[in-house]
Simulated assay, not measured.
Amino acid sequence: MAIKSVTVIGLGGMGGGMAHSLLREGFAVTVFNRSAEKAMPLVRAGAVHAETVAGAVAGADALVLSLADESAVDELMSDEVVSRLEPGTVIVDTTTVSPSYARDAAARLAASGVERLEACVVGNPEMAMAGRLRVFVSGEESTVDLLEPLLSALAQEIRYLGAAGSASALKLALNLLLGVQTAALAEAADFAEASGLGRELLLDVVLNSGWRSPVLGFRAEFMRRRVYRPAGFRTVLMHKDLDLALRQAASYRLPLPLTRQAAGRFETAIGQGRGADDAAVVVEVSA
């Protein structure tokens, strides 16, 4: 079965970008977001806006989810909604969830005749808009092959990882590294400023030396401009992902002391009202 109609649920920076990319590649795209105003740019670009989740999923060959957390997935993909899906419908879930949740969700959906692919998407909203993400997928390999045209519309690289839970584990490992690096960059900037060097000098050296990386460069630019909205990756989501990693690690009896320290710093930022800001705002947060 060729995938022609795609519903995208969740139109934040990543979800909205992916929906634009699918439109550009010729898919018939329906969109839904709890805040309907986020759908309007996509409607102007040719998408159909559904006012309800049930209306959004009706007749779709595939669904792409880009939601905040596990509870949002459970809320929008309720039994009532899933029962409206045609057998064989594929859900591509790009939401960052725990490996345990991913395996349970795949089993629940399979019982309803619906397939779930979990997709670890690596990149930022600009890359999502350009169809230049890197996508690491787990689930049934034959289903990944079936959805290759859809995934190719989103990604410059697609890699199959294996059984359910694999992509979620990779995403948490990557975001663990991102959170620790972002917190470390913030501390380096704090140290430079306390030493009288200035934040800008430290960030300039980082961005023009062997310490530079695309990930650190993206966060460093927020810190340099001291402007944290619109966020590339909200602080509240960074903390959520570090917490997921810590909870999953606890089930392995694996201590992650650096991750725990970094999570605490992002939690402080949230407590100071900066949860909607980009995670780079941690540089502005007093301990």
Results as ranks from 00 to 15, higher is better:
Leu146Gln: 14
Ala155Ile: 01
Val82Gln: 01
Met77Val: 05
Leu154Gly: 11
Glu148Pro: 00
Pro87Met: 04
Val121Pro: 08
Gly131Thr: 07
Glu115Tyr: 08
Glu148Leu: 13
Leu76Ser: 09
Gly131Cys: 05
Val73Pro: 02
Glu80Phe: 00
Pro149Cys: 11
Glu118Met: 10
Leu109His: 09
Glu80Gly: 10
Glu157Lys: 15
Asp74Ala: 13
Ala128Arg: 10
Asp145Tyr: 00
Ala130Met: 10
Glu140Asp: 14
Val92Gly: 02
Ile91Glu: 01
Ala102Pro: 09
Glu157Thr: 13
Val97Pro: 02
Leu76Lys: 05
Arg116Ile: 06
Val73Trp: 02
Gly139Glu: 07
Ala128Met: 11
Ala111Ile: 06
Ser98Leu: 03
Arg116Asp: 02
Asp79Leu: 07
Arg84Trp: 03
Val81Arg: 06
Ala107Thr: 13
Glu80Cys: 00
Asp93Trp: 02
Ile91Gly: 03
Val82His: 02
Leu133Ala: 10
Asp145Leu: 12
Ala153Trp: 09
Glu126Ile: 08
Leu133Cys: 07
Glu86Gly: 00
Ala106Trp: 02
Ser83Arg: 13
Ala110Cys: 01
Arg84Ile: 03
Ser78Leu: 08
Asp74Tyr: 00
Arg108Phe: 05
Asp93Ala: 06
Pro125Tyr: 11
Ala153Tyr: 09
Ile91Met: 04
Arg108Lys: 14
Ser152Val: 01
Ala107Cys: 00
Asp74Ile: 03
Ala163Lys: 15
Gln156Thr: 13
Leu150Asn: 03
Ala163His: 12
Ala105His: 13
Leu150Val: 15
Asp74Leu: 11
Tyr101Met: 08
Ile91Asp: 06
Met77Ile: 07
Glu75Thr: 14
Gln156Glu: 15
Leu154Cys: 11
Gly113Trp: 03
Arg116His: 06
Ala110Phe: 05
Gly162Gln: 11
Val97Thr: 10
Ala163Asp: 13
Ser142Arg: 14
Leu76Gln: 14
Leu133Glu: 06
Pro149Arg: 10
Ser83Glu: 15
Ser83His: 01
Met129Lys: 15
Gly162His: 05
Leu161Ser: 07
Ala107Gly: 00
Leu133Asp: 11
Ala105Phe: 12
Ser112Cys: 12
Tyr160Ile: 06
Glu126Val: 13
Val82Lys: 01
Tyr101Ile: 10
Arg159Gly: 00
Ala164Trp: 07
Val92Leu: 15
Ala164Val: 04
Val137Asn: 04
Arg159Tyr: 02
Ser112Asp: 09
Leu133Tyr: 12
Thr95Leu: 00
Leu150Lys: 05
Val73Thr: 07
Ser78Val: 07
Thr89Gln: 07
Ala130Trp: 08
Arg116Ala: 10
Val73Asp: 08
Asn124Val: 10
Val82Arg: 01
Leu147Ala: 03
Ala153Arg: 08
Val73Ser: 06
Glu75Trp: 02
Ser112Leu: 00
Pro87Val: 09
Asp104Pro: 00
Leu154Gln: 12
Ala119Ile: 02
Gly88Thr: 11
Arg132Tyr: 07
Ser138Ala: 13
Ser83Trp: 02
Thr143Ile: 14
Ala107Gln: 13
Val97Lys: 03
Met129Gln: 14
Val73Ile: 07
Leu161Met: 14
Val92Asn: 08
Gln156Met: 10
Val114Cys: 01
Tyr101Gln: 04
Gly139Met: 06
Glu141Tyr: 03
Tyr101Lys: 04
Leu146Lys: 14
Ala105Leu: 15
Ala102Trp: 11
Ala130Cys: 08
Leu109Phe: 14
Val121Asn: 12
Ser166Trp: 03
Phe136Gly: 02
Val144Ser: 09
Arg108Gly: 04
Ala164His: 15
Val144Leu: 15
Ala102Asn: 13
